[in-house]
Design a protein around this nucleic acid. Sequence first.
DNA 1: ATTTAACCGAGACGGTACGTCCCGTCTTTAC
DNA 2: GTAAAGACGGGACGTACCGTCTCGGTTAAAT
Lengths: 186, 186, 186, 186
Amino acid sequence: MTRPGRPAGPTDDTTTVVLTAALELLLTEGAVALTPQRLHAVTGVSRSTVYRHWPTPRDFLEALIAVAPLPPRTSSGDLARDLHTEVDLLCNRLRDKPVGGFLQALVAAASADPSTADLRRRYVGDLLAPFHDTLRTAGVKASAREDAVAAIVSPLLVDALLLDRPTARARAHRTVDETVARVVRA
Amino acid sequence: MTRPGRPAGPTDDTTTVVLTAALELLLTEGAVALTPQRLHAVTGVSRSTVYRHWPTPRDFLEALIAVAPLPPRTSSGDLARDLHTEVDLLCNRLRDKPVGGFLQALVAAASADPSTADLRRRYVGDLLAPFHDTLRTAGVKASAREDAVAAIVSPLLVDALLLDRPTARARAHRTVDETVARVVRA
Amino acid sequence: MTRPGRPAGPTDDTTTVVLTAALELLLTEGAVALTPQRLHAVTGVSRSTVYRHWPTPRDFLEALIAVAPLPPRTSSGDLARDLHTEVDLLCNRLRDKPVGGFLQALVAAASADPSTADLRRRYVGDLLAPFHDTLRTAGVKASAREDAVAAIVSPLLVDALLLDRPTARARAHRTVDETVARVVRA
Amino acid sequence: MTRPGRPAGPTDDTTTVVLTAALELLLTEGAVALTPQRLHAVTGVSRSTVYRHWPTPRDFLEALIAVAPLPPRTSSGDLARDLHTEVDLLCNRLRDKPVGGFLQALVAAASADPSTADLRRRYVGDLLAPFHDTLRTAGVKASAREDAVAAIVSPLLVDALLLDRPTARARAHRTVDETVARVVRA
DNA sequence: ATTTAACCGAGACGGTACGTCCCGTCTTTAC
DNA sequence: GTAAAGACGGGACGTACCGTCTCGGTTAAAT
């Protein structure tokens, strides 16, 4: 038996309109712009409503991370092939901004509010996960796996996040080859 | 013949007091705390004075970068030894916060004000420079150098900046060995 | 069908508290004290709120003029008697500060912001109006009326505004008598 | 025997330049604009220098009043004629701004800083003086004199100061005639 | 059809920080 | 000793958001 009255929670309209605009804002103007004020100005949804459903900045970041589409793992049997595929996937996502912008925003947000640092760590973890999975499936053991993932992915992240230059896709592929060779030797 | 009147620029007292506090603030509370208001509260130097000499946030970042002591290059003849030395140096600086905090702050600042992105790039460039120099001295050519530096340094930066974990010093040393081996083969 | 949302305009509380204090300030400390800052200090109403509802100094003067109670016209049939009554009324109001202080404040305000000069003129006009009315009712024609009003009232205003001395009530009554006599002769 | 060294006091240049600009400022922008800052901006004379010689706002008003040229008394023997002359003189000075603007400024200044009220009173007293003198010379006794001066001059001041309208010169002359007639009757 | 609980918009309100402007005092330098 | 240039502390200004709240009107389920 349920209580009478209107069910709780925001209207679907409101949710989509606001979160869409939020993502847009986050990527174009950075984490600082992600305020109820700005969202009201952009969407027309009233300030009160925004506060009602996403009381803290953290709530926005969580909602956005939840929304962000992580494409399903694609696994063939070949280690080298799978790693190359993952590299291309990551490079594309870094190039097309969503991921790069998100990272910048998360670093900035955590810098302003340390309590969101876990979101940043989790997000980065999710980016690394496919590589870890692939290597684990291939039977590479933990410590070597850590090294390999770091060697492949870190340069890409540094390029996108700190140096504002196109991700060095070719270099990453080379690193994959070296990694696979070393793993096979072992 | 010079103009009459008091020479321009802040008193030495003011400069040191403010910049010291600024660095302290930056490292303990992050980039957002680096405001005239906070500096006034912490140092007792009046808000007007702060605004007079460092009108924009960028002015602070520039002053701090200028102040930050970059240790002199130490070069023996041995490539492997030199690289290991540089790795230890960088790891120490990342562990002791100054560099890690600075990086976070610069990313956050650029997120709020894109015109400071060049400061960030320059700062990261300065971090990479010793490695580049060492490899160049050893006769490694440009493209291979880029790869090597990225492989060695990027994981360290990612650990410090994105994952909040102690820099993987051991792994970096391993990478150095592999790099040197590969370079020698070539 | 009305717009949704809370009705605009200050709460009744706010209005009365602020305007009361504003009048008090104006009369005790002069026009310069009539600032949002001071009103906040005196009333406890926050600075933001004051600025929200009375953004410019002019807004305060207007609100105060609107509030100021202009006593209802009292008209018997006798010209001399009515003029004497009006003189006493004006002298009382000048002596009890409200009007005198207001005049000083309006002159000072117009000196800082010429766009408030119309408020000053209107206010002075309102002070003269009862005399004009009385004389018009008695059938005195325009030009003579101007002269009479000026002769009776001006010295009172000058005493209050420029010479800081108690209004010369007796002299004003004498002037009324002379004026009436001259009018009757005509 | 004089002390060695440069004589004290401002250079003549400085004095004239600053005071000229001060009068200009006072009349065009009102008493509020009469600050060392503005004078520096307008004259090029340095802020320090201005503070040295006129430490308080009051010093400026005093210096300006001292400078203001009060034309010498012109006295024939005829009461009526002399009064008419004085009326014309005053009306001209009110019309040509210096006096009117000065009065406005003095009222505003006294409103901000009551300690300058005596300057205002003195200045107004100086305006009335010629009329008092003329009447005293003609043997009119004190109380009647007060009435007469008030009746003649007050309307002019009110027009200029409160109503921003051209001084009613004709009416003033009429008042002079009536006054003279009444005095003669007595 | 009525409840009834929730949504949503508009805005008041106290509060904090911002960046600017000016004040008055002072210190340093040149003449 | 005058003058210029400018540092410095201090205070008010007007603006912009923030987060909380209080009003009104609307909507959608459960009775």
